[in-house]
Simulated scan of single mutants.
Amino acid sequence: MASTTPQVITCKGAVAWGAGEALVIEEVEVSPPQPLEIRIKVVSTSLCRSDLSAWESHAIFPRIFGHEASGVVESVGQGVTEFKEGDHVLTVFIGECMSCRPCKSGKSNICQVLGLERKGLMHSDQKTRFTVKGKPVYHYCGVSSFSEYTVVHSGCAVKVGPHVPLEKICLLSCGVAAGLGAAWNVADVTKGSTVVIFGLGTVGLSVAQGAKLRGASRIIGVDNNPQKCENAKSFGITEVVDPNLYKEPIVQVIKRITDGGADFCFECVGDTDMITTALQSCCDEEH
């Protein structure tokens, strides 16, 4: 009689062996899920700037990157009650244990148990679930979706409906959720307001969609890439500003075209100087 206990799976994975080195498609052994973990067959994954930044840095190697993914649960570890084999899921690189102080607060999602890991190991036992020819390969953000199969903590996945197109929704794992959530949940953009978005990548465009849904009347996108500026209009951006086309500082441009500053400004680049610029571009009135 065949064993129903999950076994090691050998599959293809894109392994980064060193900083800035080309990823290599390897035969990766993926261990069974341990208690409170699930093993996922990855259907679709996307590339985030965070993956690139970590790949370029002198971080932990060898490593399997990727943290925006959709897939199907292949097996579950002991104690997992919210998932079963065959469930469709999205990965979440900042999980929720629902027990620590931040999770209980309702004001933060930086879980103390399943938050941003930096050691390349699983949260539960500080070990890796990947090996290549017997050599440990480390995780990234507790997800590592650049592999046909991966193992994540059950608190780092969200179940989605069986009819949701898995090949399209992987962006919801990070970029879209971050941007739309910032506009909808954190800033609580108000109807008729003026919004300025610095950076028109995935996060910035998702902020635009969130602001549009909340009824913002002006959504101004700021980016020095003309192609991004043009594409942004289909995501809710009502007008664009290319800093390269102005001689004056961008803060002065925003203050002038918004009659004293925007109601809401979003920095979607990840640059400390740009954060200052965004703050200075807000109107003086408190919202």
Rank of each mutant, 00 (worst) to 15 (best):
F93W: 15
A54R: 05
V241P: 03
T238D: 02
V143Y: 03
P162V: 06
G260H: 09
E37K: 00
H163K: 13
A187V: 01
F130E: 03
E248L: 10
G77P: 10
E285G: 04
F235I: 08
S108L: 09
R256A: 07
C268W: 11
G210M: 05
Q252C: 13
L121F: 08
V42R: 02
N231Y: 14
V269Q: 04
G13M: 11
A22W: 12
H67A: 05
V189I: 14
Y140F: 15
S3H: 05
G66A: 01
I257A: 14
K135R: 11
T202E: 03
G142Q: 07
L180D: 02
W17E: 15
P6L: 02
G134R: 11
F266M: 05
L172C: 05
G115E: 07
L23T: 05
F264I: 03
T91F: 06
P136Y: 10
S108M: 11
K168Y: 10
C268Q: 07
I38N: 01
V186R: 00
A278K: 02
Q209H: 06
P165S: 09
V113S: 01
V30C: 10
I169L: 00
S50D: 10
S154W: 04
I25P: 14
T81L: 13
S281A: 04
C48T: 01
C229R: 10
S144K: 13
C48N: 09
T277P: 00
E82F: 11
K119V: 07
G221P: 00
H123P: 07
T10I: 15
T10A: 14
W55E: 08
F130L: 10
C48P: 04
Q209S: 08
P136F: 07
K255E: 09
Q34N: 12
V132F: 08
V113R: 02
K247R: 14
V143C: 08
P35E: 05
E285V: 09
K104D: 09
E96T: 10
T4P: 12
K104L: 11
V158G: 13
V89M: 05
P62V: 14
I254D: 07
E56F: 04
K228W: 03
N225S: 11
S31E: 12
F61P: 08
S31Q: 10
S105E: 06
P243L: 04
G95P: 09
K104P: 08
C103N: 03
I220H: 07
